[in-house]
Design a protein around this nucleic acid. Sequence first.
DNA 1: TTGTACGCGTTATCAT
DNA 2: ATGATAACGCGTACAA
Lengths: 350, 350
Amino acid sequence: MRSGKRRPSPTGRDVAALAGVSPMTVSRVVSGNGNVDPALRAKVLDAVEKLGYEPNYNASAMRNPNGAGGAVGLCVETVQNPFSAGIARGLEVALRPHGLMLFTGSSDGEPATERELLLEFYRRRVSALVVITVMADHSFLVPRVHPTTPIVYVDRPAILPGCDTVTSDHAAGAFVATEHMIENGHRRIAFIGTNITGHPISERLAGYRSALMSAGITNDEAPLLAFEHDRGVPDVRQGTRELLQSPGRPTAIFAASNSDLMGVRQALHDLELEAQIAHVAFDDLDLADVMSPPLSAFSQDPIELGRRCGECVIERLNATEPLEARTIIVPGQLIARGSGEISALADRPD
Amino acid sequence: MRSGKRRPSPTGRDVAALAGVSPMTVSRVVSGNGNVDPALRAKVLDAVEKLGYEPNYNASAMRNPNGAGGAVGLCVETVQNPFSAGIARGLEVALRPHGLMLFTGSSDGEPATERELLLEFYRRRVSALVVITVMADHSFLVPRVHPTTPIVYVDRPAILPGCDTVTSDHAAGAFVATEHMIENGHRRIAFIGTNITGHPISERLAGYRSALMSAGITNDEAPLLAFEHDRGVPDVRQGTRELLQSPGRPTAIFAASNSDLMGVRQALHDLELEAQIAHVAFDDLDLADVMSPPLSAFSQDPIELGRRCGECVIERLNATEPLEARTIIVPGQLIARGSGEISALADRPD
DNA sequence: TTGTACGCGTTATCAT
DNA sequence: ATGATAACGCGTACAA
């Protein structure tokens, strides 16, 4: 594949010929390293302009791997996810001033795909990797990539030693959200979530439980709708509906993720209980304040997560000595808009 | 910047030395071009495994620009936008089987940033560019990039001759959405939108007007809330509220984009008119069916847009002769969920 | 300040 | 079927 005739791009040599200097002088002018006589410099810039010359960063990188033209590979579950998109965004903003571009790729939650993606990044000799990993083991990156190339883990614990981690505090967020409903008088607070054995939902479950425990609420009082693996929104909707129709139904709900919230909210809507059952979601939604009642949520800050990842990358690339592994916790915030402030007293069905 | 000692990655030469063959044989084995004796091949693969060798695609690209390791540069307004994210996703899926990776970058709607981004892509000698352009003129890409490197324009008309365009039919979508409300008995249908002079909102406005005209509705009957330039959601909310409180208020609203819809929906919520005023949005939302009433929308298919862009890229890269410029219109669909089916009769405030 | 020589890692080409 | 040579575009190191 990829044939077709291409007129080759002008090279530094072409510029040199036109300007009547050596390629080295062109290199100096274009890269800004080294001193060049203003007169020659002008001639070179003139030739650059005439030919529309732009340096070839691939060639540049071979000779000088730490010079201009670096890139960072970002591997997420899917770039479509607003959370991942936010990370990409923050990362991009942090990297741009340093001349680093961003490769993005989606693993679709498949370890094999993630592996292939990371290797593809490596074959392009990226300066760093940033990954929301779905793998349990990254030893295939050793010693090829690690510890030569910085790897930053986002939203998951690092699975290679010495690597930086940037994450929200999932347990604390769930704690705060649950506690918030407890303060509004609730005890029968349901946890509704899917994928509860993996990161980061397991941590959110832990935070939820810990909030209950702090308030002296037993597990018996707190209904759980927890799917171990991936489920579609319809399953959550159905399950929530059943939970709400069962005896001893909850007066409040903690939705473990925004996709879980969709099912929860649909079920509440089905039963016309949106205004009776308190509910708080982990992760915010664009339309949160347009819903009725408006949605209360614990909001992560994906852009900030991405930005901090970028900072870690830059720091490592600039470091002259080995750095300690850092764990960065990016705070989120509980945004109270209404749905979480429904008081327990409102629920008197009998 | 970017110093620090790096142990260099193993090279093809290292593999060759370990396997006791020439680098050329390694290249043949790894790239799969050329015949190699099975015995030697095994020795090479063994050495590859031992060293954890992965080819350097940057070097590869220098000697053989059309070989493995290509990349495509995608420039969008912001990757955070779900529409852009969908395009990135579709593109990625289309490119992956061909070994092409995706660079992504956000222009933030700034022509200068887009320019810099496209040049950065070019400096990395990408195989193709895909762009939601905010520029009026791309002549700076001639002849450096164009027509050597394929450029695909998404969601906007091509601004360089001979380039492919992939877009939704904005006018048709707006037409269908407006017509839908006309069929439900409305005549006073407002258009609410921002940025109406640029693509693609101007086309949506045209489609809206054309639907009115087809139904014999004059402009006098149809209130317009149209901001020429970018406005925040609060401005739209405020404007919509005023429109809804004015004499001769609309009985239906066409929201020109999903960000415009946010303001519209907030205003409707402020006045408790969600269930009285019909409204249809251009572009769907994740939570459309959780809102009450559920949102009717004309939904584009960004993933398909991205996929088709990928197809164009592949086709051009494989072409041996110059190809005609293609214009691909990706159909969308009107999704009726409730908010657009509110009949005109429901609105009897007086 | 400017130029020359060489090497980065890979592969096309030609020779064996 | 395999190897030797040169070249891709650039920058370091050194010489002028």
